[in-house]
């Protein structure tokens, strides 16, 4: 009897780990293919059939090349792009989180008239395709005479701010009313309640939305391309990658593009690893509210 239960447990456990393995492979394999491609020369990329590791076309021996990585790092634009992307994406995230969480607190926990319209209007801001609003936005930016970085940060609000506001609103709303009421009984102002009690409670939500906005800003291409066009020193990574060219016009340096995208993904992975702790810490915070 007990043995049966145990085998059942083992089967369950194995199935679970198999599932995890499957997710792991599914999520990572295309990225592995990018790494694989980034280690191949043009001739190796053209080989048929494609090889799972870089191999010499003649001898079929394992022979990766780091040529793509070297030329990516030699390209001054790329390193500068990393710096620019970091500045722009970080500022965008902080601004969107700060401003968005105020709005979300107001929309999620305070009573006032015109709440529904406010929610819809904020969402409506992000409902147009980027290409459509680009011309108008470019005109505004020109009028204001903003620097390229600032224009990117501001224009990214168009898609990050409604997102943070909405997600945080839904999380604030989820928090039990009693917390606010008991804080108010203790003599705390609504804003103090927000800052000292609600904000820490929604830490996992803050980290999550922050991360998602950061990546969205980090990956944005069309606005960045346009706003940095006459200020090349402000170009972000996606733009810099798009500016990668082959030796000759029309040649697409696929290996280098893959190398660059691998390099670019690393900082984000590190960032996630760092925030992991915050996300897990949020777990314990979640227990408080019950």
């Amino acid at each position: 009897m007990r043995g049966k239960k145990k085998t059942g447990y083992i089967i369950k456990k194995t199935a679970f780990y198999l599932l995890i393995c499957f997710i792991f492979v599914y999520m990572l394999f295309p990225f592995y293919w990018a790494v694989n491609s980034s280690l191949k020369s043009e001739a190796q990329l053209q080989m048929t059939p494609a090889t799972f590791v870089p191999r010499d076309p003649e001898t079929k021996a394992f022979s990766p090349t780091f040529k793509n990585y070297i030329s990516v790092f030699k390209d001054g634009q790329f390193i500068r792009g990393l710096v620019n992307s970091t500045i722009v994406a970080t500022s965008t995230t902080i601004l969107a989180l700060a401003v968005g969480s105020f709005a979300a607190f107001s929309l999620g926990k305070l009573r006032f008239r015109g709440k529904k319209p406010a929610l819809y209007v904020i969402l409506a801001m992000t409902m147009f395709p980027q290409v459509t609003v680009l011309a108008g936005l470019y005109a505004v930016i020109n009028k204001l005479g903003l620097s390229a970085r600032l224009s990117m940060i501001l224009s990214y609000m168009l898609f990050t701010l409604p997102f943070t506001t909405w997600v945080l609103t839904s999380f604030f709303k989820d928090l039990p009313v009693e917390i606010m009421e008991s804080a108010q009984v203790d003599g705390a102002t609504p804003f103090q309640t927000f800052r000292m009690i609600l904000l820490p409670l929604t830490a996992p939500a803050l980290v999550t939305t922050g991360l998602l906005s950061f990546i969205a800003a980090w990956n944005e291409y069309l606005f960045a391309l346009t706003f940095t066009s006459i200020e090349p020193t402000a170009r972000t990574v996606p733009v810099a990658i798009q500016y990668f060219t082959g030796v000759i016009a029309r040649q697409e340096p696929l290996g280098e593009i893959m190398a660059a995208s691998v390099i670019v993904t690393v900082p984000i992975v590190v960032l996630v690893l760092i925030f992991q702790k915050r996300i897990i810490a949020g777990l314990t915070a979640g227990a408080v509210k019950g």
Partner: peptide
Amino acid sequence: RGIMRTVMLVPWAVITVVSAKMWEGM
């Protein structure tokens, strides 16, 4: 679990245009 949570985010972190090119190659 920590590693899985990081792995889980990799596809979202790859730059959209590049990920499209990656798949085009595949």
